[in-house]
Write a protein that binds this DNA or RNA. Structure first.
Lengths: 350, 350
DNA sequence: ATGATGCATGACATCGTTGTCAGGCACCAG
DNA sequence: CTGGTGCCTGACAACGATGTCATGCATCAT
């Protein structure tokens, strides 16, 4: 008997209360509870207080998922964010800026790491779509993003960051990679260097190609034979960059200035220079700023990106699309910035 | 007339297809579509193929939210993660390790930044609860976490990281702050130092208090008068730490060795030492490892935490709880590690 | 031939909420 | 007193899926 009564009594401790529970306790209909929870008009102050009291007593919390199922527009107030890796500081700053802009609208962010894996990109997009996100912000890595065309044409807001998408016309927010790299070249040339070298990331990465292009083109514009400039690519981690730099610097006719296209490559070059005791002899400009760059000996001159601005702009575009902006897709370019700290201002040996 | 027919025709382009659409196209009932989409048995191979074909043709995707509404257990396959800031590298690594462990189970992660704001902590927890997450991983910052007791007693899986919760018994995964700091003290003392100093973060942060306690207790154990050890606290950013260190180092009887309790404090101390040209004269051990610590001059000796292990362990505990582990709450301690790089091995002036 | 068994299938209620709509009541003007 | 006008309120269907259950059909042992 006891067992039976237990079985049929609602277990207030374990079961999450629903609107029905609140309505019963407050002695009103569930629609009235709904109105109160959503701050809709048309509820007398007295009823409102009674409902609020009951909901607090039961520790009730609205179920957004159930709500958005029925609600017009079907907003879930969540978006998906795909980054190279959430542990990458550059990505982290973009993420933070995005979050700040979206939090003001009560939008939560699903974040996930891609690890340069095209398959993961597709799987994660699918996972987000299954959760009915209101929008997507992603760093494309797959060869083509045409797989999201069906969603895009269903008006799912979508903004690509860092790299432009291929095979689909959609908004993108990117750094001015080529211009920044050209700045690096012209800066080094202005210091009197003519023996430059380029150390870069894997060429299947769009931004790496852009940086090389910008650098080399500027070298050419300055009247230096581009064929004389060593271009070492495919460097994706610190150690491969270190070894490449060591080889380059101990070669017959070593460069007097180096441009490294990415953080890890810059670190590798710094290591090589330190090992050779050449830190104050060979000029270095790196793409991407990093913590403590100014504390190195000498300070490291960089082309800084502005992840905060990228994140903020991406959020703005996404929100505009969510709010119904149907204008043509556009690419927004965030300028990079030369920050001089010493390593890039070392003159060539006379 | 045209307008009317438009209004009543389902717009295949804009409207997301549902199971009903797939069922209609395949000529089956929607329950059969449900079975196919969920890989449930009891569907003939022929029917299965027809359904799969229809679903691909329509680009159909299951709506997880609607599903978990009815489904037993009500799993949403998403969890909420609350971090000091997603742009903080330490947090980023925890996040990444968590993600990796959870991704294997198809669980997506909502991430949000706390910014040391107790109000935000509560608001964000509420936001996650409203989205019916299957679990919560959080860095507590509010004075007490008793506000989640109702959820906790409803068996919402919950793991605290970095700091232990107050006012509630729940799982926690933390670094061995006191032991690590004691290691720092004993290491410096072993180098012959007796004039030590402690520079720490705000005392309302639990881990900062633990680190001070561990450090000071070890100093006492070594027979040094703890009252002789300067304790400068409330340092929450680089510049306040830098100024505190400058003042300390230019005082009448400056310490010969410094322990800094946190990254930003360490950076501030490094700056001060550099400004005074004392980098190779005053010993320094910092709590928390950081990128390029080995590239400094001298390399910076640190007590390294293991964010990856914290994240992985937190994920394991969370999954265990999700899988129904009802054992008593427990605190898991991840040991820290002394990494010697030079700055901590500088001897005192004879 | 007959009833039992098993498989494939779909009708229907349901999850927790919101949109729609109609009903009840108080109030006011005529 | 009557009809109109608002304001509150709740019954009910619906959102897109899954759990339950009944049904139809083929197969099989008796």
């Amino acid at each position: 008997m006891t067992t039976m009564s237990n079985r049929y009594q609602p277990d207030t401790t374990k079961n999450r209360p629903t609107m029905r529970h609140v309505a019963a306790l407050a002695g009103v209909g569930i629609k009235t509870v709904s109105r109160v929870m959503n701050d809709e008009p048309g509820v007398s102050e007295e009823t409102r207080q009674r409902v609020l009291g009951a909901s607090q007593q039961l520790n009730y919390q609205l179920d957004m998922a159930a709500g958005s199922l029925r609600r017009a527009g079907r907003r879930t107030l969540s978006i998906g964010l795909l980054l190279p890796s959430v542990s990458n500081p550059f990505s982290g700053e973009i993420h933070r800026a995005l979050e700040d802009s979206l939090a003001a609208r009560g939008i939560a962010v699903f974040a996930a790491s891609l690890d340069d894996d095209p398959e993961r990109e597709k799987a994660l997009v699918a996972a987000f779509l299954g959760r009915r996100v209101d929008g997507l912000v992603l760093t494309p890595i797959a060869k083509s993003q045409s797989y999201v065309i069906p969603e895009h044409s269903r008006d799912l807001p979508m903004v690509f960051i860092d790299r432009e998408p291929v095979g689909i016309e959609a908004d993108a927010v990117v750094t001015d990679n080529a211009v920044g790299s050209a700045m690096a070249a012209s800066h080094l040339i202005a210091q009197g260097h003519s023996k430059l070298a380029y150390l870069g990331d894997r060429t299947d990465i769009q931004t790496a190609r852009e940086r090389r292009r910008g650098f080399i083109e500027e070298v050419g514009r300055a009247g230096i034979a581009t064929s004389s400039v060593p271009v070492l690519e495919g460097l994706h981690d610190e150690d491969s960059a270190r070894r490449a730099a060591l080889q380059l610097l101990t070669s017959e006719d070593p460069p007097t200035a180096i441009f490294s296209s990415q953080n890890l490559v810059t670190f590798g070059v710094m290591r090589a220079l330190k090992e050779l005791g050449a830190s104050k002899r060979v000029a270095l400009v790196g793409f991407d700023d990093f913590t403590l760059a100014d504390m190195m000996e000498p300070g490291v001159t960089v082309i800084a990106q502005h992840p905060d601005r990228i994140g903020k702009l991406a959020a703005e575009r996404l929100l505009a699309r969510i709010d119904g902006d149907h204008g043509a897709a556009q690419t927004y370019v965030v300028p990079s910035e030369l920050i001089t700290r010493g390593s890039g201002e070392l003159p060539p040996p006379e």
